[in-house]
Design a protein around this nucleic acid. Sequence first.
DNA 1: TAGTATTTGATACTAGTTACTATTAAGGAG
DNA 2: CTCCTTAATAGTAACTAGTATCAAATACTA
Lengths: 142, 142
Amino acid sequence: MINIQRKTIQRQIIFDVLRSLEHPTVSQINDVIQKEHPAISKSTIYRNLRQMEDEKLVCRIWLPNDTERYDNNTTPHYHLKCTSCGTIYDIEPDTIEQKTKNPTNTATISTISTIVAKAIKKRYNFAVTKKDLVFSGTCGEC
Amino acid sequence: MINIQRKTIQRQIIFDVLRSLEHPTVSQINDVIQKEHPAISKSTIYRNLRQMEDEKLVCRIWLPNDTERYDNNTTPHYHLKCTSCGTIYDIEPDTIEQKTKNPTNTATISTISTIVAKAIKKRYNFAVTKKDLVFSGTCGEC
DNA sequence: TAGTATTTGATACTAGTTACTATTAAGGAG
DNA sequence: CTCCTTAATAGTAACTAGTATCAAATACTA
């Protein structure tokens, strides 16, 4: 009996709260949990979030000039961050398309990033396993 | 006399140390400075690094699962991080090239990221001003 | 129900920020 | 060149964010 994930109430609460929020910081998750369950410690929260990340139940995301955030969208995708209002948007890599110079050509971010990963392998002999792409700027609302 | 940047010895020391290191963390910068100048406080170090970032003298970079780092390469470029040895490599966006399906086509990361930024504008009405692209994986040495 | 390894919560630590007082660089007047 | 003024900067201390350690509690299995 080694390394089995146990089902604890704390773990279930943390997961549920995370699922109810959009790109929350740990502090936001903590605020919600404290109201109902003040006995749950921050160690437990951080620890469980990391564990869920390892299990691929959630993603931990790193945006410039921000604290760590969690994302319950586990499909591969990238992020936009509005530097004016702070909102974080998901970019779905396979839905976005852009014609290149040749009007019959279209490219998704997904295929583009695959091309880049191959180029990196060729040029730097570096095997890419994870891509963190963040675009900062101003959103349509601002 | 408002908002003039003053030339302080602390500022010069911090800048010189930063220039001598590759992608240093603040802790690495601090370690070097403390040996010669133990009186310089961490607030001063953090404050000056941020100020130099505002002046575009250095870049602050954010890598997944890492503390903040500074980069004295101020030309636009992206990063590779080896998850095995921890080494950080710069990708020069204009030097890397990769043929697309059409063998007469080549694309730099720079042009690709410009295409993506335009697509983001069209699709999400979001004006990209900064791109933070980090590729994690295993380097040739590991 | 008992045994045991995992998980929790507490505590103390490292990393980074903020607020505030004391110091100092730069510019002007004599 | 020296003194004065003043706003920017330095250092201190106290705070938020995140990590590590470890005894106590608890989930799982037999």
